[in-house]
Nucleic acid binder design. Structure first.
Lengths: 260, 260
DNA sequence: CGATTTATTGAATCGACTCAATTGATGTGG
DNA sequence: CCACATCAATTGAGTCGATTCAATAAATCG
């Protein structure tokens, strides 16, 4: 078995927890699995300030990034400046597996807050697929869930009204944070600005503001400073026509439980 | 080596060609690779009429489907009937690899035209990953491209105007058909109704109609019956702010050329 | 051929946008 | 620790893109 780093500093320790906690929604990992993940997450760590790019459209993809702490987003931009956030990365999230087989990035990845990432190499994935079937399955699950999230965003932008769309996005983020163990009861940190929400929902900043006021007036959310509270998740879900099925948070892969 | 079916009927023969032609945009396949793909495509073939569901939201996913002929789409629907097409399947397209690790489908797959599909089993993918690295790479490439397409749709719905959006969608379809060898010069078959286009672009049917009239008036498309002609692809591309980079049609994987 | 689906047109309405100004927060340096 | 600068949030007013409703024309199919 691989050697384990003696200790991880607090932030990364939390982050590995977020990843493991998320993956364990799907498969139960063995101690050895956890060790491999912890090692991968402590090797080649980089830190970024808020509001900077980690990768730009056109760059050659080199590694897979694992978000250890902080929030980031994937975005695409048109020449005239129109910008669309196409996904958010929360702690424990990983960008596309195997991107390095592509020649260049078709989108950028930028930070929202300060962010710590671990760069995962091709070798890591080779090692996983050779000797850690449960992790491999869990990573496939993550890939499929990410694809499902992207489809749901398509649905969100295409069919939902402004307030449904906003409620839906808030639900999704809340669910994903909770999965990663980053909520406390009904509240969570929420560093997105209204401009970020505008870029993600395809609404104007002004309309985001008005939409949030609607949600607040209906007691669906409390959003102040950088903290979100959801007084009643059920009500927010139904107002956003939110069905969590696309997050596939079931323990289906538990037939792959580690039983050593 | 596996035994090859003596002969394939015309339609499937074309379809295998579409798949191989598409994958070869990325890696060059060996004769043995082609044989494996041809065998997989001729095993367990099913036919569907137009406008029927192949899979429904909530179903347990069993196989990966490969479209041999015809057009299909993935769609999601809200309780009140609002419907969003989240992707189109053209001949040679495959739905998500490894879906069978999920418990239930979060979307439906329905046909547009009559469709022939091949069901690909878990075993097939095990065989590929064990012994056909070029195919495995090509399938990863397809997965990554599909994810990129979904992101581009998010961009399309979130940021582009109605006519840009329509032009963009038509460009994408034309490019993808051309990649599969299904265009003839500037024209291709185009079985989508205006209602389909509405569901895919998030516009109303009426507005789709008016948007198409705009594009026609600007000589950007000729769309009659079930045939699309693009008089000048460059002009349609620029009117749709279409940048084909997200289709990753480069021969980057050619370092994986078969050279036996 | 009639029946049904698909495409087209007009008119009225509404949701979301732009522009522009103001208020409120956050943060930094003197 | 306050003053200023900057960034984020809020408000109002006018406009426009896209919608709905409803009716008609054209195409397709059995």
């Amino acid at each position: 078995m691989e050697s384990v780093p003696i200790r991880l500093i607090a932030a990364e320790m939390i982050a590995v927890t977020a990843l493991i906690r998320k993956l364990e929604q799907f498969v139960r990992l063995s101690p050895a699995d956890r060790v491999v993940l912890a090692r991968a997450s402590s090797d080649r760590v980089r830190k970024f300030g808020p509001r900077v790019d980690i990768t730009r459209e056109g760059d050659r993809p080199r590694d897979v990034h694992l978000i250890l702490s902080g929030w980031a987003c994937r975005y695409k931009q048109l020449d005239d400046g129109r910008r669309q956030v196409v996904s958010f990365f929360l702690p424990g999230d990983m960008c596309d597996l195997n991107v390095f087989i592509l020649k260049e990035m078709d989108h950028s990845i930028g930070t929202i807050t300060s962010v710590t990432i671990a760069d995962l190499s091709r070798d890591f994935f080779d090692e996983i697929s050779a000797g850690y079937p449960r992790i491999a399955t869990a990573l496939w699950w993550e890939t499929l869930v990410n694809a499902a999230i992207q489809r749901e965003w398509t649905m969100n932008l295409g069919q939902r009204t402004a307030s449904e769309r906003m409620a839906h996005l808030l639900c999704e983020i809340f669910f994903r944070l909770r999965l990663a163990g980053l909520t406390e009861g009904l509240t969570c940190e929420f560093p997105l600005t209204q401009a970020d929400l505008a870029d993600a929902t395809g609404l104007s900043k002004v309309h985001v503001n008005r939409t949030l006021q609607e949600l607040r007036a209906a007691d669906l959310v409390i959003l102040r400073g950088k903290v979100l509270t959801v007084p009643c998740l059920e009500r927010l879900m139904s107002s956003g026509l939110f069905n969590p099925n696309y997050l596939h948070m079931d323990r289906e892969g538990s037939q792959l439980d580690a039983n050593e």
